[in-house]
Design a protein around this nucleic acid. Sequence first.
DNA 1: CTGGTCTGTAACCGCCTTAGGTACAAATCG
DNA 2: CGATTTGTACCTAAGGCGGTTACAGACCAG
Lengths: 143, 143
Amino acid sequence: MAAFTRFALGVHILALLASKRDGAMTSQTIAASANTNPAFIRRLLAKLNKAGLIKSQPGKGGGSQLAKGPKKISLLDIFEAVEAGRIVAAPKTFPENGCYVAANLAPVFRDFTSDAEVAFFSSLSDVSLKQVVKSLKTAAARS
Amino acid sequence: MAAFTRFALGVHILALLASKRDGAMTSQTIAASANTNPAFIRRLLAKLNKAGLIKSQPGKGGGSQLAKGPKKISLLDIFEAVEAGRIVAAPKTFPENGCYVAANLAPVFRDFTSDAEVAFFSSLSDVSLKQVVKSLKTAAARS
DNA sequence: CTGGTCTGTAACCGCCTTAGGTACAAATCG
DNA sequence: CGATTTGTACCTAAGGCGGTTACAGACCAG
C-alpha cells in the first residue's frame, strides 16, 4: 500500500520551515528541497495555512513561515491538515438482502476500528514538530 | 480517503463464517451477503486461506469455513491477511540536493510514525472475531 | 504607477491501484 | 463421468494522486 504520502511531505515542509525561523520561505525553495514542483507544494501549503499551522504572504519577498512555535505543532495537527477524513473505511450496509451480518456489521465494525484509530491519532499527537527537528539535527550531526 | 476497504469486507466474511459453524459456505453465498461478485470474494478467501484463518475445499459440496475458533482470530489477523504492507508511507530521501532535512528526515519520520502504527495494530489485536460476532448478535436482537 | 515576484487555484494529463467481471483449469464428490 | 466449487489469470472502468502549465490576485521596490 503505502498510503498517506502527503503526510510525509507535510512533515518535510514544516520541518524545513521550523529549521529556518527567520523570514519566509518560498514554495520554489521548498520544492527544491523535496524534489517536487512548486505548485504541488503550494497545494499542501494552502491546506497547512487553512489549518492555522503556517502563515503565507503573497508578493515580492513573500513566502511561508510557521504560525506558531514548533513545540505547539504535533504530528497529528499535520496529519489532519493534509490527509482528509478517516483511516479505516466502513463496510457497506445492505439491510435488504436478508443477512443479519450485512445489516448490522457497520456500527459494530465502526466501534472496534475507531478505537484503533484513536490509538493511532493519540500516538501522533504525542510528537511535536520540535522533537522532529531535534532528532533531525542529531541525525544530521551524526552523518 | 477511506482506505482499507478490503479489511471491512474481510471482517464481513469471517463474521459470516463464524455465525455458521457447521459446514462450509460457498463464495456464491458470501457474495450474495456482501452484495458483490463471487470472484472478488474468492480472491479475498485465498488470502485468508494463506494466512491460515480459514480452510477451503474445492469440488461439489465444498466451500470455506473457519480454520480455528473465533476466539483465536483477532482483527489484526484479518487486517494483515487482506491489507498488504505498511500504513504510513515513508518520505522519499534526496541526499544529493544539499538539504539536511531531505537527507535525514526518513529515519526520523519512520521512528515516530511506527510508534503510531504499533498503537493502531495493538488496538486491533485486542479484538477477537468472537467479540465481533457477539456484538453483532446483540445488535441484531435490538433491531 | 509600473514591473517583478509570489501565492492560490483551476485545469489537464498520465500513472497506478482497485473493484467489478469473465473465463477457464484443477480439484472433488456423487 | 458430470456437476460443482475453488483458484487464478485477464480485461475493463473508475478514482485518486502526483506532475505540470497557466493565470488571476496580492504585494513590494523603485
